[in-house]
Design a protein around this nucleic acid. Sequence first.
DNA 1: TCGAAGTTCTAGTGATCGTTCGGTTTTTCC
DNA 2: GGAAAAACCGAACGATCACTAGAACTTCGA
Lengths: 201, 201
Amino acid sequence: MSSPPANPALRARYDRRRAQVVAAAARVFAERGYHATSMQDLIEATGLTAGGLYHYISGKDALLVAICDELMEPLLEQAHEIVAEPAPADVHLRELVRAWVAHVERSRDHMLVFMQERHVLERDPRWRHVRRQRKEFEELLADVLERGEREGVLRFADRGLALRALLGMVNHTPQWYRPNGRLNVSEIADGYLDLLCASSC
Amino acid sequence: MSSPPANPALRARYDRRRAQVVAAAARVFAERGYHATSMQDLIEATGLTAGGLYHYISGKDALLVAICDELMEPLLEQAHEIVAEPAPADVHLRELVRAWVAHVERSRDHMLVFMQERHVLERDPRWRHVRRQRKEFEELLADVLERGEREGVLRFADRGLALRALLGMVNHTPQWYRPNGRLNVSEIADGYLDLLCASSC
DNA sequence: TCGAAGTTCTAGTGATCGTTCGGTTTTTCC
DNA sequence: GGAAAAACCGAACGATCACTAGAACTTCGA
């Protein structure tokens, strides 16, 4: 991989092209899996050749990191904005889940890759920051659930299990969600919330 | 791979050894992922050598199929026994989820592999029967939910979404479940059911 | 129009992949 | 104890893997 161009205008074009490469990689990784995808597959998906592809990335694993970053950074930023607003915990929870499920629509491939290659990310020390992002999001959720009970606006038979169930439900969504399906993303998010706190909120 | 011994006693020993090989493969696949695991990894995990390993399996993919079969066949059998008993649908559902979650404890590695390599199984025509088994189990669950509403013992805001949520919750369980953890498998199963039908059963 | 910067291509590299096969050791059974 | 069956070994095989070097082409500013 060469360094990106210094000229700002050219840099913008470089970034745009690189984003196309990452998006194509996300599509193929989501379909075939990261390890099952060869550079040849990526070459065909991008329309480039080997050398051209390596002009934009340092290696196959850099693509995986880029995909995870593109997923988690905007989600985390959005999440922090939500909980920064003064509001009761149940409102925060609803907005968090809606933003999260909305990501299924916006970045379905990214989420599928992130879930599918979880074990890769969990083990490699190079990808500690991806692990930290996931952990940060889950802790943010856990805090909201805990605060909800303290504020009296949420109640769970078992808060820990409720968190795990929520993570399971939402993270499983990209496996079956189809655009123009029967339910849109806010209906799905609200449906999950109804299940999670049918007895409280 | 050579054919298994004809002699029944020797055949039993052969099968036992082969089961050990499959179990070792499940452990490594669950940790590293199917494609990321090399035959060298499996050789080290089994304590055999390349030739010895291929005495029991026809190839790497046969191990994946064996793992999925070991998971789905007993689960499906158990599920059919449960719904064959005369009982209301809510009872069937509870027993189904309990049996299912119990599989997390019994075959955690198998479940992790089955979930992680879902995309492999979904695409390859050789593994149609594994897909059919998964589909059969999900349809069995769907039938119980539908019957529960018809019988008036279950009620869901959205039955389709409830099924998807249940699949997400349970299939996500092996990601966080630890033996000797705070909750045992029936507590987990009942917790899921409380979430799923807090307003009905 | 010319040189520089940026982009893409071609033709490979060594390493590692899953797998094979002839041979050796161990076990079984009469 | 001896022959046959079974279990296991390990040095290879060809294929494919991720990746690279260097040249060719394109785009851009002056």
